[in-house]
């Protein structure tokens, strides 16, 4: 083991000198006569390998040319990470274009959503967007925390249900009248519940809201009665039911 290490050290030390011609095989062996038998064949092998190293060297210009080729190949490959891909492929002009395209897309999407909400808000029970309208109203109610504002919103919704009812009658869609009446009833009940839960320190607000509800219900009854005179007999049952619901609301208020 010791000889191996010693020989390796000699080889490492004198290899460059042999390669450059500063030392010869014999001069090194003369320095280590005790190792000559072990050292000679190995140094001869090293000299042969040094010649091989020269014969397997790259041809002139290969490294320079192939470097250019390699760099071109790499540049045509997709970059490493997502961010590198993003920053590498986008020129300033492309950035502006992408920004404009995304902005335009957001504006268009906003316009479409706005349009959809407006259409939904004008829809009546026989139309496909009516369920969207109810969801929007539920969201509005969930986001209204003030008791007075919430009760006002219920009153507004009860008025909305009456308007829908009138539109259904005018369009002749009488099969939807029972469900519309049920929704009107639930809005009136919710309004009354909300009034019930008014805080004690807001009694003035409660009074004003109460008056508002009474007026709304009276208007609704008047509107429904007017509708009764102009509608065909097949619609009368539904209209009478709706009038009865509104009247019950007034009774409950008393």
């Amino acid at each position: 083991m010791k000889i191996e290490r010693q020989i390796e050290q000699i080889i490492n030390t004198y290899s460059p000198a042999i390669s450059s011609g500063e030392e010869s095989l014999e001069s090194i062996l003369a320095m280590y006569p005790q190792l000559a038998n072990e050292l000679r064949p190995r140094l001869e092998a090293v000299i042969w390998l040094q010649q091989v190293r020269l014969s397997v060297a790259t041809r002139p210009g290969f490294i320079h040319d192939s470097r250019k080729y390699l760099e071109a190949q790499i540049k045509s490959m997709p970059p490493h990470s997502f961010w590198q891909r993003l920053f590498k492929t986008l020129t300033p002009r492309r950035w502006v274009f992408n920004f404009a395209a995304i902005t335009l897309m957001i504006i268009s999407l906003g316009a479409v959503i706005n349009d959809l909400i407006l259409t939904a808000r004008l829809s009546i029970p026989n139309e496909p967007l009516y369920s969207t309208k109810l969801v929007i109203e539920d969201i509005q109610l969930a986001l209204t925390f003030n008791r007075k504002a919430k009760t006002d919103l219920y009153i507004q919704l009860s008025n909305e249900r009456t308007t829908e009812f009138v539109e259904l009658v005018l369009q002749g869609d009488y099969e939807y009248l029972p469900s519309a009446t049920r929704r009107l009833e639930s809005e009136i009940t919710a309004t009354l519940d909300s009034l019930e839960n008014f805080p004690i320190h807001e009694q003035d607000n409660k009074q004003a809201t109460l008056v508002k509800l009474r007026e709304t219900l009276t208007n609704e009854i008047f509107m429904l009665n007017m509708l009764k005179w102009t509608s065909p007999p097949s619609a009368l049952t539904g209209i009478n039911l709706a009038i009865h619901v509104a009247q019950s609301g007034i009774v409950a208020l008393h």
Binding site: T58, S66, P79
Partner: peptide
């Protein structure tokens, strides 16, 4: 090179390609 610098990788190539070539060619 890890940050995507192709020239830096080219420098690495220039530095180590001769040894790799000799290994392969032998």
């Amino acid at each position: 090179a890890q940050r995507g610098d192709v020239t830096a990788f080219g420098d690495l190539y220039e530095s180590h390609a001769p040894a790799i070539f000799r290994y392969l060619f032998s």
